[in-house]
Design a protein around this nucleic acid. Structure first.
Lengths: 351, 351
DNA sequence: ACAGGATATGTAAACGCTAACCTACAAATA
DNA sequence: TATTTGTAGGTTAGCGTTTACATATCCTGT
């Protein structure tokens, strides 16, 4: 695929890569001019530019990223940390990020933290130490104080889906948790449900608190008194959802609907219902959150709140590049719209 | 334009990063010695090593990767290309790769090719041009000839799950497609099925051909004549599976079991059965392949052939590092074992 | 006719590190 | 004793770019 690259001239190359000097020689200009052409900086006459561009194209030259990084202090690499890679939630965000970065001709250096705080911190240290220009932290483990320290060191980064409430000055992207939750609960209320349980994520997480807020707001609007027994904390995993739902269904006065704070939990809840011979949605309505691919393939198909995950990733990149351009970007906090997707797991309560 | 680079005095800084020279000064040795210590190369006395290591630790120093890359010609970065990031199949492999690379203190530069051949080629060109030391290609788009060209240019890479049969000299990792398929079909035969359909992937793909081979071998062993009408080609996607299964079920003499060549197809087949009011597994048995997370959450839970995807990723890294160490590694072709996981989507045929 | 800005290009000094090459010495060997 | 060998550690030349600075030319307005 590489264009024919036989070297007629004296310059031999061990590895087969042309340098800017060779390109300059071929084009009959200095290396500075070549650099100016490929970086579109400074003054270059149209004629020279054309010549150089032709030579570059003919030889399939592209600058050595490391040399550029060393010299100019930018690498074209963006560090991305995620707790885990394979859950659909994260992989879709990463896909969005990768897509957006590709368009900017940047590359993504991916690291999974496995939810380990120390690992994330050391990772970030290293990433920022020359490997990458900036970073995108998905659901970061760091405390607000740690992030502030990083900022003060001049590290540029954006947080996607902050776990906790963090320093105002850190740009963030997240979904409209509260509104989304409100939509979900409102949907159940509209169907006529009054005993609506919630299976939440870990306490203290923004996603949990905000969704809870939306949930309660919807109940309040409908004049339904919230029952503390109907709110169970869990861990955003299938098994957690199963256990939480089991507990809820064994209540003396069980709920007729469950709002699970993500799809995994919702799927767990469906399993719990199945185990008890309760049909969904006839005997129990279930709503999830996220709208990952799983929501489409379970039976019945899951009603859930759609988060534009890929778009969230792309938006993160957008904030990042804006931050790199305008040295001082006022901290931006973007909240992306969610949308209720009604499928087959919700129905009016049994009469 | 330039990063803050006002290094007035030898001490603290704007940009925060210490150089090897400063560390050398602190430790009272030359930069070469520091380099020898951190790279564990050449002779260094125990005393000196200890001192340097202490200084390094105290200042949290780590070498600028770009400078190292430029000077030593290695980057510690590995390019990884996948067709898409978010399908569970790929993201699990990537997770395995990331994990293994992390242990080697290398980083992963992730690129999705979106199944576009040109994109993959140009990507690879660039990656190999200094950004990364080597690459791991998952289900690559390239032809055998293109890969050979890359090899001849001295690029080091490993192919994970080759799409087509490729040059012998390229190291590859894949699952034991044929054996796995054999297990799946044998399982159905044991249950008593005789009309067993197969929904395959695209013709020409190794995964398709090999699985087909295993499938036919199992049929032959059981003395069942293969019926060409029962083999339908598809595309490894849910919708493709639905359509293919629909066609099969509308046959005059429909199958009593379907072996879908991946879980997505199997899920599509389950949907087709559901649409026709056929109960799985009572009226129709379905077996998948891959054992991605989806297999666990559909109803009924899917019997499928487990591929050790994360392990496949890790093995890819292992081959890669071995290749980097021994300059000339004989082409290795690793085939990882698959395992039939029997769940709830298979049963004896209706009598 | 000329100062001075706009344009165009070259020269060479970093960037931070590695590794080839050197020096120096002590222990082992002839 | 003379010579080799193994250790220890310093010096310094790149690695391939970018970019500050220097230089040269061409306009334009006075």
């Amino acid at each position: 695929m590489t264009p024919a690259r036989e070297r007629a001239s004296a310059t031999h190359d061990g590895d087969g890569r042309l340098t800017i000097r060779e390109i300059a020689a071929f084009a009959g200009v200095s290396t500075a001019t070549v650099s100016r052409v490929i970086n579109r900086s400074g003054y270059v006459s149209q004629a020279t530019r054309t010549t150089v561009e032709r030579v570059v194209r003919e030889h399939g030259y592209s600058a050595n990223r490391n040399a550029r990084a060393l010299s100019a202090g930018r690498t074209g690499l963006v560090g991305v940390t995620v707790p885990l890679i394979h859950p659909a939630y994260f992989s879709v965000i990463v896909a969005g990020v990768a897509e957006a970065l590709y368009e900017q001709d940047m590359r993504i250096v991916l690291c999974s933290t496995l939810h380990e705080h120390d690992r994330e911190v050391s990772l970030l240290e290293r990433l920022m130490h020359g490997t990458t220009d900036c970073a995108l932290l998905v659901l970061p483990e760091e405390s607000s104080a740690e992030l502030r320290t990083l900022m003060e060191h001049g590290f540029r980064f954006v947080v996607v889906d902050p776990r906790m409430r963090i320093d105002e000055r850190v740009p963030t992207v997240s979904a409209a948790h509260s509104t989304g939750a409100n939509q979900a609960t409102a949907h159940l209320l509209e169907l006529g449900h009054r005993r609506i349980a919630a299976i939440t994520g870990p306490a203290g997480w923004m996603a949990t608190e905000e969704r809870l807020r939306g949930h309660h707001a919807a109940l309040a609007t409908a004049g339904v008194l919230p029952d503390p027994a109907l709110v169970v904390e869990s861990n955003f995993e299938v098994e957690g959802g199963r256990i939480a739902a089991a507990a809820l269904l064994d209540l003396a006065e069980p709920p007729t609907a469950i709002f699970a704070f993500n799809d995994q939990l919702a799927i767990g809840a469906m399993q719990a219902a199945l185990e008890r011979g309760l049909r969904v949605p006839e005997a129990l309505s279930i709503v999830g959150f996220d709208d990952t691919a799983e929501a489409e393939i379970v039976t019945p198909r899951l009603t859930t709140v759609h988060q534009p995950l890929a778009e969230i990733g792309r938006m993160g990149v957008s904030l990042l590049t804006r931050q790199l351009e305008n040295q001082r970007l006022d901290a931006v906090h973007v909240e992306l719209e969610t949308k209720l997707v009604v499928r087959a797991s919700t129905a009016p309560p049994p009469s």
